[in-house]
Design a protein around this nucleic acid. Structure first.
Length: 482
RNA sequence: GGCGAAGUGGCCGAGUGGUUAGGCAGAGGUCUGCAAAACCUUGUACAGCGGUUCGAGUCCGCUCUUCGCCUCCA
């Protein structure tokens, strides 16, 4: 069974095979670190995390690069905009590098909670100024770039395929009537900056052959992608809103420089919306992850994200999150039950489920269908456990292996890394277990004497005061932490 | 205006020609002292209008509506 990936460039699903057998080179646009991450970041990086995980499960070695943009790109492509990181630095009365460091750490904190695996390499833009300058020099030498008073621009006319990703190929039509005459310095209004001269008050700046300045905002991805993955890479991922101009510019400058295809598969994930409207910082409707995590289990958020396809918009609402909480709990409950219940003699065939799961994942990472398979499995296994003959030890092991493979390793929704027990809490768990045994005994006595008021009181108080839930099953009482 | 995506049952959300997606919520039932969990039963949805076809959420056309990009943005 082969993997098919939707390629934004061809707008079709294509059979995926890496350029170099066995090894996948993958680059995903990382965050600009000038604020805490929001739900949109979560959707993006969870989606690509599953892509990486699935490629690895499929036997590929994946070299996964995800950059950190720590140069504040302008809020405007002209000269009028402000540097976002610098702006935040002055707001917080500190310097840009501290801002970048602070929010980089914040980003990883949140991603760790979401069970997003760290990239193989996380290069920063500021750490790759020489590479970016070298790329500009190459473009200058080949006549694709030109300098005007310390600024360097890419000449869009010099690259025939400009706009092929977004479908914006007719530059004349695009530019007619739009901000004409705003800048006379560029030869063509569509030309974009590769290097900008810094003014006095600009804090992040570097020496270059053209001026003391800073790189243009499309440049870092090309430079770092080529440095770590080579001139042609297998997969480049990013948000849909970056198709134009960011990715089209990346293609132009990279392919103009190397004469080779830059990316074989372009993958774009869709937006998170709130009441049908895009979530964005500038729109003041963004949902901060740290805020959500105070109320919700991060893995519920991960599950919620994976319940829709990465290329679909995801609409956020309290009720949707609640539904996901209950849904994920159902799967976890099945897993617990399977683990706790005594073994029987019944045989259970997992192969149809594992085949359907693989099929779903191979179909452009269709996680909603993959999850539906897990729900079907959950139902089937619960039904089997309800039966007199139960489930045999061998079958139990097989189901557990599939749940581990699908739910934990691939989708990451059972990933309890963020609550990994240390030695101290292991001791605690042991002690709680002993206490629970005593309470079970007392409760059993009460129930035998039909003193249900007492047995219910034990159950209710444990839930309310300790967050421990008791369930009376046919195999006796079980407890779990809520 | 240009480029692109989308409209599915109460809500979320899959599905590129023919068989039940799935989750949540709701209703009825089984089990249980009760509760919880679980299981069983239950919903004839596909924006509208035409067309293609033996057969269409699924293909084509038109209409309506929504959303994204065209400034930074996951």
């Amino acid at each position: 069974m082969s993997l098919f990936i939707y390629n934004s460039l061809s707008r079709t699903k294509e059979k995926f095979e890496p350029f170099n057998p066995g090894v996948v080179s993958m680059y995903v646009c990382g965050p600009t670190v000038y604020g805490h991450s929001h739900l949109g970041h979560a959707k993006s990086y969870v989606s690509f995390d599953v892509v990486v995980r699935w490629l690895r499960q499929s036997g590929y070695r994946v070299k996964y690069i995800q950059n950190i943009t720590d140069v504040g790109h302008l809020t405007d492509d002209g000269d009028e905009g402000e540097d976002k990181i610098m702006k935040q630095a002055s707001l917080e009365k500190t310097d840009p590098m501290e801002i970048a460091q602070f929010y980089t750490r914040s980003f990883y904190e949140d991603m760790d909670k979401l069970a997003v695996m760290r990239p193989s390499i996380a290069p920063t833009a500021t750490g790759h100024i020489p590479e970016q300058i070298a790329l500009i020099e190459k473009l200058m030498a080949t006549g694709h770039a030109y300098e005007v008073e310390g600024n360097v621009y890419f000449s869009v006319k010099s690259f025939d395929d400009y706009g092929k990703l977004s479908g914006r190929t007719d530059q004349e039509a695009l530019q007619s009537g739009i901000r004409v005459g705003l800048r006379s310095e560029k030869r063509d209004p569509s030309d974009f900056a590769l290097w900008k001269k810094a003014d006095e008050r600009h804090l992040m700046k570097w020496n270059s052959p053209w001026s003391i300045g800073y790189p243009g905002w499309h440049l870092e991805c090309s430079a770092m992608s080529m440095k770590y993955l080579g001139e042609t890479i297998d997969i480049h991922g990013g948000g849909m809103e970056n198709k134009f101009p960011h990715h089209d510019c990346e293609i132009a400058q990279s392919e103009a420089a190397t004469g080779k295809p830059y990316v074989r598969f372009w993958m774009h994930n869709n937006m998170v919306t709130i009441n049908g409207v895009k979530m964005g910082k500038s729109l003041k409707n963004s949902v901060n992850l740290k805020d959500i995590f105070r109320e919700r289990d991060p893995l519920v958020i991960r599950f919620f994200i994976l319940q829709s396809h990465y290329r679909s918009q995801l609409d956020y609402s309290e009720s949707a999150i609640k539904a996901s909480t209950t849904g994920l709990e159902k799967l976890l409950e099945t897993r617990r039950r399977l683990h706790q219940q005594q073994t029987g003699s019944g045989e259970f065939d997992v192969s149809p489920f594992s085949m359907r799961f693989t099929e779903a994942m191979n179909d452009d990472f269709n996680t909603p269908v993959a999850l539906a398979v897990l729900f079907d499995l959950s139902k089937a296994i619960n039904a089997a456990l309800d039966r007199q003959e139960g489930v045999s030890e061998r079958s139990r092991k097989e189901v557990e292996a599939l749940l581990d493979y699908a739910g934990k390793k691939t989708l990451g929704i059972f990933d309890e890394n963020n609550r990994e027990l240390n030695e101290e809490s292991k001791e605690d768990t042991k002690r709680i277990g002993a206490i629970m045994d005593i309470l079970f005994e007392l409760r059993a006595e009460a129930r035998e004497q039909k003193n249900f008021a007492l047995s219910d009181k034990i159950r209710d108080l444990l839930l309310v005061k300790c967050g421990i839930e008791i369930k009376d099953t046919k195999d006796g009482p079980v407890w779990s932490e809520k």
